[in-house]
Design a protein around this nucleic acid. Sequence first.
DNA 1: AAAGTTATCAACCGCTTTTCG
DNA 2: TCGAAAAGCGGTTGATAACTT
Length: 307
Amino acid sequence: MGRPPCCDKVGIKKGPWTPEEDIILVSYIQEHGPGNWRSVPTNTGLMRCSKSCRLRWTNYLRPGIKRGNFTQHEEGMIIHLQALLGNRWAAIASYLPQRTDNDIKNYWNTHLKKKIKKYQTAVDSYKTSSGSGSGSGSATSTASHHQELTPRGYNAEAPTLPRFGQAASTYASSTENISRLLEGWMRSSRKANTSTTAATTTTTTCLRLQQQQSVNNAPPLSQEELESLLSYEHLGGGTGWEKSSAESSLHGRALSTVADDDYEAKPRLDHTQQQQQPQPLSMLEKWLLDEATGQVEGLMELSDAMF
DNA sequence: AAAGTTATCAACCGCTTTTCG
DNA sequence: TCGAAAAGCGGTTGATAACTT
């Protein structure tokens, strides 16, 4: 507190990173390892503040980061975890090890928020038309679970990220990130971007439906669409949750308990280790599964309450 | 075809928490 | 134990592509 902002100095560049800057940063980190960010701009000649370098590395250049193409499974997990944990993106990201909190946050704000709002509208109109007005108990239940699970500090239940310097063996895969970034940089059009994902397609479909509905003054969603949104599989539960273990982050995490203290004491394994060491579901994860099967409605009500 | 609007996401901001000397 | 630096975090902004009028 009270420190001057690190990026206010004259000559500090802002805005998008160029591939050249990325390459400089990655090669420096490959050579020296991440950490000591203060010295990075000085030693590399990058006209960026140390914080900017760190963020660029952690959010985009770090090995093992998956970008775009959110699967339905990931989408479901985000929706569910957001209902449980609120906007604690780092905690949510800890369940999706290949995703950064920033990425999840953006995806939530741009896609899922709308989707849930739309879903809630559908539920409300469905309830109104069918004449049932009650049913807030599960929401309360979910909220109380939330409180129980997050009694203390702000990242209490999130597995802590490894400190820089602990994952120094995996820099090689940064080249993948770099080439991907270069690819993106060279694309003149954003058209060819990663917008053809199932998730985006679903969102687009929803938006188109919404447009049609607003024109026709029709109910927000058909029963089929509603059920599709509600389905357990869509929420990342059921067979989808269990069978997709190869891509499931749950199996890889170094979690054995939900106790906050233990959680904090157990740093996440790096991604190689995660892929090799399937772990049994923790109590929280089991509970998540239970929630997904039984309290979808409550989840949606809770989500709605946050808007 | 141009202008206006909306959607997307990388990057920044400002604050809190953690680490370290 | 204390203070400074580093790291972590969530919210917000700004540039630009895509879409609509």
